[in-house]
C-alpha cells in the first residue's frame, strides 16, 4: 500500500498526485489547479476543511481547527491511499 502516487477524485474530477514526503495534500491539489480556499496552512484555522469520502490520510501536523468525523484538513495532511474528497 505504501506507494507515492495516488489517485485523487475531487468533485467528479480525477487527478493523479505524486505524494512527496514534505508536500501536503493542499499543495498537491493546488499544483493540479484545484480551487481550494486556505488561510493559515498549518491546521489551526480550518479554512481548507474538506470532506473525505473514501481513502486515508496521515497528518503531518496535529490539526487544531474543528473538523467533523468525515472531514480532513488538506493543509496539514497527506494522502496514504487513493482518496475521494469533496471540497466545500
Amino acid at each position: 500500500m505504501n506507494k507515492d502516487r495516488y489517485q485523487v477524485l475531487v468533485s467528479g474530477k480525477e487527478i493523479a498526485i505524486k505524494q512527496e514526503p514534505d508536500k501536503t495534500l493542499l499543495e498537491n491539489l493546488e499544483d493540479n489547479k484545484v480551487e481550494i480556499h486556505s488561510h493559515c496552512r498549518e491546521g489551526f484555522c480550518g479554512t481548507c476543511r474538506t470532506r473525505l469520502i473514501s481513502g486515508e490520510v496521515d497528518y503531518i501536523i496535529d490539526p487544531l481547527a474543528y473538523i467533523d468525523d468525515d472531514e480532513i484538513l488538506p493543509c496539514c495532511c497527506k494522502a496514504v491511499s487513493d482518496i475521494t474528497i469533496e471540497i466545500n
Binding site: 488561510h39 493559515c40 489551526f44 484555522c45 480550518g46 479554512t47 487544531l64 481547527a65 474543528y66
Partner: peptide
Amino acid sequence: ENLHLTSTQH
C-alpha cells in the same frame, strides 16, 4: 483571530 474563531467553533 483565526485561532480565536477555532476555539468558538470547537
